[in-house]
Simulated assay, not measured.
Amino acid sequence: MSLADLQATNYDPRDPDPWLALALDQSLPIDPEAKAALLRGSASWSRRWMFNAIRPFVFAFFLVVKLLRALSPHHPNLNGLLHKTIHWGLRSFGSPDANLLIMRHFHVGTELLAFIKANAGEVSVNTVPLRPRTLKDLEDNVFLQHDLNVFNFIIQLNQSLRAQGRDLTPVERPDFSMISDAPFDIEPTKKGWLNFADVQTAVEVYTPLYALLLPRADFIRASNSLQLDEPVAIYIGKILGTDYHLSFIKNGHPLVALSTMQAGFRLMMHGLDCEALHGWLRLLKRRQAQGLPLDPRNPTAEAARA
């Protein structure tokens, strides 16, 4: 399914196609490729049927894992096996759209943090850029490192700002150089006869596996990291001097932690939040390059300096 495919269908006001409505909707500035992949996944039989069929079993497995982790919070610690299993599962059963969305997420997260760092002034922040090109690259501790990156970034950024007695402030001409305005360098995956799992089904299945193979503290940290979208968006708002993009964020502030049992759904929302934030920055980058006001809602504002 693509936007062109949907537009080619006959539109009947008495029976409007819900996928056409979502494809045409422009409420979120999401990359067209990512949006098309999400729509295809949502419309797939995997999401509509298999997802609902497996959820009770995944929930029961999750409860067993939580009980086991209550008895043994530190062991087993099989991070290497976890990443190899995720790679194997996505290669064997993940649809090309699911694999693309998962790999895109690490590129998007890397660029969002880089944008904040570049526009924060003199701060000491060290994280590991994550740019997986192939599914095999995911074995290199990518999922765990992603969680570590976000927490370490927030800790180190705020340590630096507090030591200087200041906070993030609006930047006259933000640096968007790290925001990609072209497709990420991601190798497309093959569509075999078993590659049917949409991204939400894949996420739902591997979430309890994540809890089983990592120490309890690592899983709880990973789960809580899903609610860091709002602090990251607030940092971006302080730099841009606008809070419009906060309307994109729906994962909730981490000061009120949500249950780890909701981690699968919140991981999907985390991906959507990040795609919307990245798409917004990409839009602003283009407007800055064209000499337009950064805020597209205010055409009378002073144009960005060339």
Score class of each variant (00 low, 15 high):
A163G: 04
E139G: 02
F143K: 05
V142T: 07
Q159T: 11
D137A: 14
Q200T: 11
E204F: 00
V142D: 05
G121Y: 04
A197M: 15
R131S: 10
G165A: 06
L168P: 06
D198L: 11
R173H: 04
S160M: 08
D167N: 12
N158E: 12
V150A: 13
R133L: 01
P129A: 08
V142M: 07
E204Y: 00
R162W: 01
D147R: 13
V203Q: 12
R131K: 14
F151T: 14
D147I: 15
V205Y: 08
N195K: 10
R162T: 09
F184G: 01
R166F: 15
F143D: 08
P129H: 06
D140P: 02
N141M: 03
V125E: 08
R173L: 13
E139K: 10
P208V: 06
Q200C: 11
V199R: 11
D185I: 09
L157M: 11
P170W: 00
G192N: 09
V205G: 06
E122K: 08
T189G: 02
Y206E: 06
V203N: 07
V203R: 13
I186A: 01
L161Y: 03
F143L: 14
D185T: 12
T207Y: 13
L130A: 03
T134D: 04
D185K: 05
L144T: 13
L161C: 06
P183I: 03
E204P: 00
F151M: 13
D140M: 01
L168A: 09
R131D: 07
G165D: 04
R131Q: 13
P170E: 03
K191P: 10
F143H: 12
E172P: 00
V205L: 15
V128H: 09
L130H: 05
T189F: 02
P208E: 10
Q159S: 07
I155V: 14
A163C: 02
L194S: 12
D140V: 00
V142R: 03
R131E: 12
